[in-house]
Design a protein around this nucleic acid. Structure first.
Lengths: 130, 130
DNA sequence: AGATCAGTTGACGTTAACGTAAATGTAACG
DNA sequence: CGTTACATTTACGTTAACGTCAACTGATCT
């Protein structure tokens, strides 16, 4: 259950990803399952990393960004420095996301304008049709 | 100035796009410049279409979506029906954009949470360092 | 043994919107 | 005639994150 290692299919079920995804993440050095012969065994550490990977994706980080962040945690050294660095990266990402939201809001407003124009134009057709 | 046709470089300057982009749009049947020998001459109609293309892109429509919308206007037939159809498409797109905005807001909120956590963790380090 | 299941490793395919390089053309200027 | 500027076509390259085969391997069940 809360077993120490999980097979690839157990991982897929637990995190709702495909085997291809897990193998892909391994090839990108985001995960490091141990090998029992040819098969992959995912450890507690892999599960923790995968959780962070999926969270990072929700934040819009690229896998490469995520890999670097994870590497930060793996290197020995001051935990504080790493945390601060991660914090800064996250803040920058937040700024990007807020900028993106501003653009989106602009586009939404512009599109709403267009829709209003369209509505009145359609209303014009209706009147002319009498 | 407000000449009837424009060269490709004039178009590029006027709309801030590259020649490659204009040729690409022609190949995708979004624009139909006339040919003077081998060279392209962009008409008033092309300019109107390009304006709509760029606006559509700001709204997040794909070029294929945009092509279909433009075709709608070009086909003879009831202007009203076309307008209504376009209106509906735009409304759907607006709904998508608002959904996307909601997701983005969620992610922003979650990331802000993480940042708050990070701040307190960093503060913890500072205290422990005394 | 035969069949079935879970897993593995390549390796090419996908999508969008162009970028970029190569080889060539054509037109005006001096 | 040579150069310079602007243009053209063709075609392969790019980026991200996997999807989708194909062809095996190993273990287990009957």
């Amino acid at each position: 259950m809360t077993n120490d290692v999980m097979s690839i299919s157990e991982m897929c079920a637990a995190f709702d990803v495909t085997p291809r995804t897990l193998r892909f993440y391994e090839s990108k050095e985001l995960l490091f399952p141990i090998r029992q012969g040819t098969k992959r065994l995912f450890t507690r550490r892999d599960r923790a990393r995968l959780k962070l990977i999926l969270r990072g994706k929700r934040f819009g980080f690229s896998l490469e960004d995520i890999r670097q962040l994870l590497d930060l945690y793996d290197r020995d050294g001051s935990q504080e420095v790493q945390l601060i660095r991660t914090y800064e990266i996250a803040r920058k990402r937040l700024a990007q996301m807020e900028a993106q939201r501003a653009e989106l809001d602009e586009a939404i407003a512009e599109l709403k304008d267009q829709l209003a124009w369209g509505e009145s134009a359609i209303a014009g057709f209706r009147k002319a049709a009498e």
